[in-house]
Design a protein around this nucleic acid. Sequence first.
DNA 1: GTTCTAGAAC
DNA 2: GTTCTAGAAC
Length: 343
Amino acid sequence: MPTCWLVSEDDRHKPIQLPHQQALILGRGPETKIKDQKCSRNQVELRADCNRGFIIVKQLGTNPTNVENVIVGKGNQVPLKPGQKLCMVNQLYPYTVRFIEDASTFGSTGDGNKPVKRPYQKDSHGDEKAKEGPASKISTPSHTEEASYGASVTEKATPQKAEPAGHWSQGLKVSMQDPKMQVYKDEKVVVIKDKYPKARYHWLVLPWESISSLKALRADHCELLKHMQKVGDRMIKHCPDAQKLRFRQGYHAIPSMSHIHLHVISQDFDSPCLKNKKHWNSFTTDYFIDSQEIIAKLERDGKVSVKEGMGELLKLPLCCHVCRKEQATIPKLKDHLKTHLLS
DNA sequence: GTTCTAGAAC
DNA sequence: GTTCTAGAAC
């Protein structure tokens, strides 16, 4: 059976072995050399399946752990396969997973067949709640996922109950199923109004098929994406202000919400829900990728890759999307936008 | 994703 | 003093 190794992509430390079918909890601590206070000492629970060649990543900490740039969500678990990227917290501390047949030349101990020793790490800062427990923990492999969680985690600490489907990042999956939210549906897609619209008109087009993110798209999704855009076109066409307003259709490079969704949004950005720089830049910088561009990339390459560093675009200065003039604050930007509305 | 709020900026 | 942002908490 191959051995499984968690590899620090920025080479902060040597690979950590993940024993087969044993839950290992990692986070801030000497093993990962992560000192970032945003990272819980029990940030993730990792469980390797050495026979099938993947690991299950469960987010235990409050701050986001990402797999392939998608937030896992506290209490949720997702698979991580070789080649995919795990970011321990806040898009930082990248890792990949590797399965090695002969592990003798790999890792820090050179002893490829035994789990890496992980002694109890006393909290030297004394700032962490005692309930967080040891820095890492291996539970017995005989438990089921649920039993293991109940036995090893609940009792020792995490006060919140595991509610994967209840996490905010899963909200779209709930909304799209709610008839009261649906404004259009057919055999392939459903349209809902954005719960917090960032403009006078702001819809989300979601496929019934569960597609986690842009990275999960494959060539055979092209027709679906074209259909989603056509449905968006139809929404715009039936809008009473269609003549007056400009619209864009596109995707966020790194969406916060699970389940792929096409934004159909009018370009007035006249909405009380548009409150901060992140909101603004997510719709007016390259963070917003036009539907056509995604479709073209998918047709050309058979996949969509999102460039690194897109998150930085959200911190850019506030720049008017019409005249590109920079605005100092959100309220000033909102005042400025009114001048374009009147023209 | 939103809400809340400390403290920076004015 | 008030306004506004940015980060933590949810």
